[in-house]
């Protein structure tokens, strides 16, 4: 600041009109705030979910429906309980080869399965829509055998699907989108035929409704 500026600043004879106008910057603040707000809402609600999940396809497009028509014991025919009470989960190759030693239908996916996996004795690396983290203990026996729940009550109508749905993998956690649920906000209920989300709160909510208690930590986190 120069000496003349200082003099100007302290001169009592100078009037108000001689001061430069001080315009409010409120509209700039508001405008920018709205840009930030709207932008982040768009990112958070629309772009983020697309970025968060990468889409993968099952190695074989599996037709549950056609299998259900040809087995005698429903889901249990392939997803069964072992003698010791443990649940077999996704069947391994040996279960499939009981029928698919050779191509028995006309579906190109079946032919692919037989030539690329059965003939080469190679396990199919199925992508599990319902895999839980290793810190979670879940007993199918307690729910299905013990509480008499149906498979559909958690997994929806997957047993009647004709194609494998696209597997959406969370790029941070590595788990399927089905665990969190397809609604990124987790508002609303899944459709009547959809599987249920399987986060801890979902377990606790159902337990509270069915048993009157959310349950203790160690029931699932051994």
């Amino acid at each position: 600041m120069s000496i003349s500026d200082l003099e100007h600043a302290v001169d009592p004879n100078l009037g108000a009109a001689d001061h430069p106008p001080q315009k409010s910057s409120g509209w700039v603040v508001f405008f920018c705030f709205m840009i930030g707000l709207v932008g982040s809402l768009i990112v958070g609600w629309f772009l983020f979910p697309q970025w968060l999940y990468s889409e993968k396809h099952q190695p074989i497009d599996f037709n549950h429906s056609i299998h259900m028509d040809n087995v005698s014991d429903g889901c249990n025919s392939c997803h069964f309980f072992r003698e010791d009470g443990t649940f077999s989960g996704i069947p391994d190759l040996s279960a499939c080869t009981d029928c698919h030693q050779d191509v028995i239908g006309s579906d190109p996916e079946e032919e692919k399965f037989v030539t690329e996996y059965v003939a080469q004795d190679k396990e199919v690396q199925w992508l599990s829509y319902f895999r839980q983290p290793d810190c979670v203990f879940f007993s199918h026996a307690a729910h299905v055998t013990g509480a008499g729940m149906s498979c559909e009550s958690c997994h929806g109508d997957i047993g009647y699907s004709t194609h494998s749905k696209v597997y959406q993998e969370n790029i941070i956690s590595g788990y399927s989108r089905d665990i969190w649920g397809y609604s990124i906000s987790r508002f609303g209920k899944p459709g009547e035929h959809d599987g249920k989300p399987m986060k801890m709160n979902d377990c606790a909510k159902c337990h509270l409704e069915e048993t009157g208690s959310k349950g203790a930590c160690f029931q699932c986190h051994k």
Binding site: V28, V29, F30, F31, C32, F33, M34, I35, G36, L37, V38, G39, S40, L41, V43, G44, W45, F48, P49, I184, S185, R186
Partner: peptide, 16 residues
């Protein structure tokens, strides 16, 4: 600052 603030508020109102 307003833009950052708006972004922060917006983010908190989103699932991100």
């Amino acid at each position: 600052s307003a833009c950052v603030g708006g972004g922060a508020v917006g983010s908190m109102l989103s699932p991100l």
